[in-house]
Design a protein around this nucleic acid. Structure first.
Lengths: 199, 199, 199, 199
DNA sequence: GATGAATGAGCTTTCATTCAT
DNA sequence: AATGAATGAAAGCTCATTCAT
């Protein structure tokens, strides 16, 4: 198969993932049907299966796709030559920016991946499908510790704080209970997290 | 209808909710069928509908039930005559204790309620179905602020931190990625949260 | 559950088996759909599954049903006080009678059971689902040997002859290649089989 | 089109038939897909249709192919200058040899051709697609009758006996119910058939 | 209150066949 | 000749809900 054709098929795969991602994030895994996805992509149901051999596999490929996307955004921050405190804030900013510009990404992460364990059980054990994302958080954390800015504690304790907090805020936003815009919380959250994690 | 009969029916309702709670928490909302629930309770599907007129309504009554249960546990802490710092730790302890002894409660909260927005959309708007639970967190927080122990910030920022963090840790536990037992994190988490929220 | 209700459900099960038997025998296993069967029985597709939890299981229950029916017909012959030679002929007669009056029985045996190994693989290993039928042939054969009428040889060699022959004739009839009616072959076949098996 | 090219195409056709034959015999007609066959032959599905315009037509061409192959094997025996009794045994031997060396041939005959009437209905009426095979059995039989060795009876009665018996034995072998190897039955079967058919 | 048979729309998945390249 | 993406009808099966008993 020529590279050109391969690229074309790969491109279509990504289009399908993007389309499915939006539908899943909006309506949930079980309320999004394959016909729904096919229709959104203007393709036949049967052809969908030439790209993804099952709905579950599609869901798994999407979470890897999301993880890579988020991981890459964080990598940009990790690569910056700024203080740990500034990085902390930047991470929150980028997370909320994505939650605002590409809400389906964060929603997929929170509502589909975290909540439908049975779907991801086989093939995504122990968070390997969100590996790229976690890795960047780990780099951020260990660098902060190495620099003497962050307290040396179990990584997962720090990870749970950081990600649970941000996920929780996005969830509250989705429930319309937040009195202010997400961005208006950045200062508070930034301060809270830094206070919690710093030495 | 006599009170006795009413009580009997109420008791049966709670038994159903408890049974359904376990199944929903274990298998998810869409992978738990009404026949599954009826079977677990040794009753007929038809009779189930004498107690709950739809699956959605059952799910909504359960979240209120869970909220009341969790709220009550927190109330016991709020009623104690101890410092804010101690209360912070106690809340974490009780949360993890429930996650260990009655995991279906926390799982229902995290996996069913937080993740199936469509189910709770009508009737549980804006978290009113978890009202009792949130109220107690609010009391804890405002009391801490009043006492001068906690920094005065937007409540939801504090709430997102506290609950996102704890939920995140339970989730990580469920994914088997935590190297230690949940209880071994209590000190760290306690410290992190208190550092974050205190003045 | 009361016996009356149980009987009613059992009766309905048998009606379904009979209806499905006819369709399978006529159109083949893969060309008979569950909707086809449901329609023939004037019931809904979903309700079919209250009686048989899968198409394969339905097929397996039918072959047992057929085996019992055929076995019973043969038992009547085995119970008769007639010579082995006469029994040989009677068996052929009854086989052809069934092939003519209830052709679906023989057709199911030949076309569905013998030919769709994959369907019967799990649950009908080693012909246990046609046990009743084979048992009667075995009784006929061993009795004939004991009486000194039939040559003592490996049972399966005799069984293959008898059943292969009859099945072959019914098949040829079905293909419309036989110049005469099946019954007109009884004398010939009877003679051939008896000559082959007798001492 | 030059003869060379024609030959090449014919050769490819036969390769496809051989490949499809094995898959059909192993998995059945309805459980073998065109993509399966194409894959086994390392060709594209589209190209398959340049050789056979439909799955049914492929199946029909295969049965003719099988019939010719089996017919040819029998012709070799018919051409021998040996007694009818010896020929009878030789036919059984060669049938079992093929069942052992090229089981797909016999399996195709028994499981695909004999059992999926609907597929062969149009185009193979009255066994014309297995014409070559039947013809040789007919020659064997009529020669035996002419020589005064076999009883003069309706050909189909003899044919049903011979082929039903051998098919039945192969089937029993396939079901793993035979206590001995197929070849160990040759003497018995040979004797049975000759006793049945001889004058 | 209690039962469970019945409904039927809707789901995921399959596959023979076509056709642009 | 050759490719394989695309089609779309149809399959087996599920399940919330109803209702006669």
């Amino acid at each position: 198969m020529s590279t050109k054709i391969k690229d074309k098929k790969l491109k279509r795969k990504e289009e399908i993932m993007q389309g499915a991602l939006e539908l899943f994030a909006t309506n949930g895994f079980y309320n999004t049907t394959i016909p729904d996805i096919a229709k959104a992509l203007k393709m036949s149901v049967g052809n969908m299966y030439n790209y993804f051999s099952s709905k579950d596999i599609l869901a798994k490929e999407i979470i890897s796709f999301v993880s890579k996307y988020l991981g890459n955004e964080l990598k940009n921050i990790n690569d910056m030559d700024i203080s740990t405190k500034e990085k902390t804030k930047k991470i929150i900013e980028v997370y909320f920016k994505i939650a605002s510009v590409k809400p389906e990404m964060i929603d997929y992460f929170l509502r589909i991946y975290l909540s439908n364990r049975e779907v991801f059980k086989n093939g995504c054990e122990g968070m390997i499908c969100v590996n790229e994302f976690i890795t960047e958080i780990m780099i951020y954390f260990e660098e902060g510790v190495a620099k003497g800015n962050l307290r040396d504690q179990d990584f997962f304790s720090a990870f749970g704080l950081f990600m649970g907090y941000l996920g929780g805020m996005v969830f509250l936003k989705g429930e319309n209970v937040l009195p202010k815009d997400l961005n208006d919380y950045i200062e508070d959250i930034s301060l809270n997290i830094y206070k919690a994690l710093s030495v």
